[in-house]
Write a protein that binds this DNA or RNA. Sequence first.
DNA 1: GACATATAGTTAGTTATGCAACTAATTCAA
DNA 2: TTGAATTAGTTGCATAACTAACTATATGTC
Lengths: 146, 146
Amino acid sequence: MSGNQFKRGELYSFITGVASTAIARRLQKNFKQHGIDITIEQWSVLYHLWKQDGQSQQELCNATFRDKPSITRLVDNLEKLKLVRRVASAEDRRINMICLSEAAHALRDQTMEMANQTLNEALGGVSTEEIEMCKSVLQRVYDNLK
Amino acid sequence: MSGNQFKRGELYSFITGVASTAIARRLQKNFKQHGIDITIEQWSVLYHLWKQDGQSQQELCNATFRDKPSITRLVDNLEKLKLVRRVASAEDRRINMICLSEAAHALRDQTMEMANQTLNEALGGVSTEEIEMCKSVLQRVYDNLK
DNA sequence: GACATATAGTTAGTTATGCAACTAATTCAA
DNA sequence: TTGAATTAGTTGCATAACTAACTATATGTC
């Protein structure tokens, strides 16, 4: 294994083992401390619904890079929490449109504020240029594999 | 929410939702296609044991950035697969030293080759400098939060 | 119209994660 | 030296992930 390949292995280890969980764990803890009982995964679905309400589960799969069973269960749990409801589409009855409840709308500002705080904390000492470059690299990795 | 903060939200989404799973999924698929029935998480533990055999579970926690119950269960499953065994330390009987079996040693070259192929594929069009920069950013993120 | 194919979503089974509470062994201090 | 605090590891519970197999609706072709 060449030196460079070893570094790539380390990057793999880092991407899958650290960066993907450290921010999530911190954000989860902040939610909990503020009495907000949703998981980060649930929040990431709400995040995309706040951008556009009424998306289908398939659209949420694409947006969150999850598979269909994962979204089915996240929506199940969000429904239990009365944060979303499934509304059958009139045009295509295979489709569930996922619609935010009033409670979910109310969560937006509160959690977005915490997310920003956490991300500012996490990204202390990281410049905007570096953030952009990371995004670009991660996008290329994703495109290479999809 | 300012423009920059929105970009940070997108980065969060990307880090937790894409980069952390795309490479892992591809590597998992490659393992399966070659008849290697271990999970990526199990592989990531073996990866650190190949670097140094006989580490304690706590050392594996630190190396893989997982908590103790996660390592307990990964070691449980690796033991079921007869890839490692727990050996009680003579000096400190609280400690399990995790030791690789012959079968696990044999897996090393085969899976490392696949990992390198997958990472080369994933990192196509990404320069060594960019990889280093990403590692540096992810390290700073981790340090900021730990 | 009827049958093949594709698409949206669900269910079952296994593995993994985080948290909290626990046991057992070790260390430190009065 | 005994009793408190620390450290290593395990167990229980809830949530989430992927794969494979499934149902139901829609589309397209003969």
